[in-house]
Design a protein around this nucleic acid. Structure first.
Length: 500
RNA sequence: GGCCUUAUCGUCUAACGGUUAGGACGGAGCCUUCUCAAGGCUCAAAUCCGGGUUCGAUUCCCGGUAAGGUCACCA
C-alpha cells in the first residue's frame, strides 16, 4: 500500500452521547463531518460517548444509527464495527483512558482531588459571592496524594497562559488564562469525562478534523493544554455554526422544539431533502445552485464556505425543497410511494372504489401536484379533497349554492340556464365513444367549443361542481377523464334533476 | 458577572476594498385558467449603530449595542 506522507488520510468522526434522539443540530454536524471525509476519500467514524451512565437512554445507539443511516451517512467504523484502534464505544475503552491517566500522573500532570464534592461546591459558591470566576486551580493542593482510583482525578494544567489557535471556520481564536482550569479527567465512578476521553480517542483513532458545534470554543484551551501535556499534535478544529430557534432567542435544543430527525422521515420528507437542506444551513456552495444530491454535496463541500453565524431552520423552505426533490424522483418510484401512503390512510381505504388500483393510479398526478411531502396526502384526504373521486358528492337542492357562484339556486332563470348547459353536455357525453373519456385532452375536445360558445365559466363551473361538489377542484376535463363516462353522466343527471 | 463568539432583505445566504448589494424560501401582483393546484413573469424587502483607515468600505481596525455560547464528577 502506498501512502503519501504529505497527504495524511482525512479522518472525521461524529461522537454523540446516547442520551436520546438526534436532532437537526447534531445531525448537521455529523453531516459536515461525513461530507468532508467522503470528499477526501477519508474515514468517517461513529463513536459513542457513553461515559455518563446516569444520562444514558436505553436504545439510543440504535436510534442514532437509524437516524444517520436514513440520511445515508454510513460510517467506516462504529459500534458494531471496531477498528484497529479498538471499540468505538467509550465504555469499552476504559483501559486506554486509564493508561493515559497514569501517564499523566507520572509526568506530574494529574492528581487526585482531595476535596469532597460539597467542599468544591463551597469554593464555587464563595467565588460567586465575590463575583469572581471560579477556578479550581486556585484551590489546588500543595502536595498530591497517591490516586486510589476512588477520588476524581484532576488534570494539572501545565502552563497558565493565553491560548491561540486556528479554527478552519472562525480563523484565529484565543482565550485568556481564565479559560484554563484543573478539570476532571476520571470521575469517581472510574469513567473518564468527555474532556479527557474524546482527546484520547481522537488521537488513537487518527482523527484529523474535529467538527463540532460552537459551544466547545470556550473549552478549547483546556483541550489544547491537555494535548500539550500528552504531547499530541492538534487536529484541525472545524466549528459549525449553531442552528437557532425560530425566534432566534436560543440555540435549538431538544427542549425548544427540536424534533427528532426521524420525525421528518415519518412526515414523509425525503432523506435527500434533509441532507440538502441541513447542509445549506451554515454552508453554501458559492454558486446559486440549491438542489443537491448527496453525491453533489460531497463534491461541492468545502470548509471555507462554512458560515460563522447561526441560522434558523425554516420549515417552509424545507417543504419547497422537498417538493423539488420529489420532482426528481422517477415516476414509478414516486407512484409506488404515493400508493403506500394511500394504503395506510384509514379513510381513503374505506372507499369501495379504492380497491380498483387502475382507477386509483389516475389520481397520482393530481395528488402529486398538491403535496410537498408525503404526509400531505393525509392532509388532503382529511380535508375531503379526494372524496368525490370515490363517491358522488351529496348535492341537494339548497346545498347547491356556495358563496354566490356555485350552482345558483336563487332564481329560477339561473337554474334553468344551468340545467340547459348540463343537459347538453350530458347529451354530448352520451353519444361519445368510450375512448373519448381516456384523457383530459380528449374530453376537452368534446365540450370545449360548446363551453366557449356559451361562456366557459357558465358551462364549466356547473359541470365541475356537479362532478366534485366543491368550490375548488381539478378542472372538469380531468375529473371526467378520471370518473369515466358512466359515472360522469350519472352525476350530471342527478344535478339536472335537482335543478328541475 | 468573567471569558469567548457572532452580526447583509422576515428566513437561508452571495458579494473575500470598487456591484444599480445577487440568488432562494416566504409575501404581493400579473399571466395561464371556470375554481384550485402546478407552471411562467414582475415587484417590494437587507449591509445593527458610531468612529476611524482608505480615493473608495457590507468587506479592514476600534468602540458601543444586540444576540448566542461557556463557566459540572453533562457531553
Amino acid at each position: 500500500m502506498e501512502t503519501n506522507n504529505t497527504d495524511k488520510k482525512i479522518v472525521t468522526r461524529f461522537a454523540p452521547s446516547p442520551t436520546g434522539f438526534m436532532h437537526i443540530g447534531g445531525i448537521r454536524t455529523a453531516l459536515f463531518a461525513y461530507l468532508w471525509a467522503r470528499k477526501n476519500n477519508g474515514t468517517f467514524i461513529l463513536r459513542i460517548e457513553d461515559t455518563d451512565k446516569e444520562r444514558e437512554v436505553e436504545g439510543s445507539i440504535k436510534h442514532i444509527e437509524n437516524s444517520l443511516l436514513w440520511l445515508g451517512l454510513e460510517w467506516d467504523f462504529g459500534p458494531e464495527t471496531p477498528g484497529s484502534f479498538g471499540s468505538c464505544i467509550q465504555s469499552e475503552r476504559l483501559q486506554t483512558y486509564m493508561e493515559f491517566a497514569h501517564k499523566l500522573i507520572e509526568k506530574g500532570f494529574a492528581y487526585p482531588d482531595p476535596y469532597t464534592k460539597e467542599e468544591v461546591d463551597d469554593f464555587r459558591k464563595k467565588s460567586e459571592e465575590e463575583k469572581k470566576a471560579f477556578l479550581y486551580r486556585d484551590h489546588r493542593p500543595e502536595k498530591f496524594e497517591i490516586w486510589d482510583g476512588k477520588k476524581p482525578l484532576r488534570f494539572k494544567v501545565p502552563e497558565i497562559k493565553r491560548y491561540t489557535w486556528t479554527d478552519a471556520v472562525r480563523g484565529e481564536l484565543s482565550a485568556g488564562p481564565e479559560a484554563l482550569d484543573d478539570f476532571i479527567l476520571i470521575k469517581s465512578d472510574g469513567y473518564p469525562t468527555y474532556n479527557f476521553a474524546h482527546i484520547i480517542d481522537d488521537y488513537y483513532m487518527g482523527v484529523t478534523h474535529i467538527f463540532r458545534a460552537d459551544e466547545f470554543i470556550s473549552s478549547t484551551p483546556r483541550f489544547l493544554s491537555l494535548y500539550d501535556a500528552l504531547g499530541f499534535t492538534y487536529p484541525v478544529f472545524v466549528t459549525t455554526p449553531p442552528i437557532l430557534r425560530d425566534d432566534r432567542t436560543k440555540k435549538l435544543g431538544k427542549r425548544d422544539g427540536a424534533k427528532d430527525i426521524l420525525e421528518y422521515r415519518a412526515e414523509g420528507y425525503l432523506p435527500e431533502t434533509m441532507s440538502n437542506f441541513l447542509t445549506l444551513i451554515g454552508w453554501n456552495p458559492g454558486t446559486e445552485k440549491e438542489i443537491f444530491s448527496k453525491k453533489e454535496l460531497i463534491d461541492a463541500f468545502t470548509l471555507d464556505h462554512i458560515q460563522k453565524s447561526g441560522g434558523v431552520f425554516n420549515e417552509e423552505k424545507l417543504d419547497w425543497m422537498n417538493k423539488e426533490h420529489l420532482k426528481l424522483l422517477p415516476e414509478t418510484e414516486r407512484n409506488a410511494t404515493m400508493h403506500e401512503w394511500l394504503c395506510t390512510n384509514e379513510k381513503i381505504t374505506q372507499f369501495e372504489k379504492f380497491s380498483d388500483t387502475t382507477f386509483v393510479s389516475k389520481l397520482y398526478p393530481i395528488i402529486f401536484d398538491r403535496i410537498s411531502k408525503w404526509s400531505d396526502i393525509n392532509t388532503l384526504i382529511e380535508a375531503g379533497e379526494l372524496d368525490y373521486f370515490f363517491e358522488a358528492p351529496t348535492l341537494e337542492k339548497g346545498m347547491l349554492s356556495v358563496g354566490t357562484k356555485l350552482i345558483q339556486d336563487e332564481t329560477k332563470n339561473a337554474n334553468e340556464e344551468i340545467r340547459k348547459y348540463l343537459k347538453h353536455i350530458k347529451e354530448i357525453f352520451e353519444i361519445s365513444p368510450d375512448e373519448a373519456f381516456d384523457s383530459a385532452e380528449t374530453v376537452k375536445a368534446l365540450i370545449f367549443d360548446y363551453a366557449t360558445e356559451q361562456g366557459r365559466g357558465n358551462v364549466l363551473w356547473p359541470l365541475r361542481v356537479a362532478l366534485s361538489g366543491r368550490e375548488k377542484s381539478p378542472d372538469p376535463f380531468t375529473l371526467v377523464s378520471i370518473l369515466g363516462k358512466v359515472e360522469t353522466i350519472s352525476r350530471i343527471k342527478k344535478v339536472v334533476e335537482i335543478l328541475t
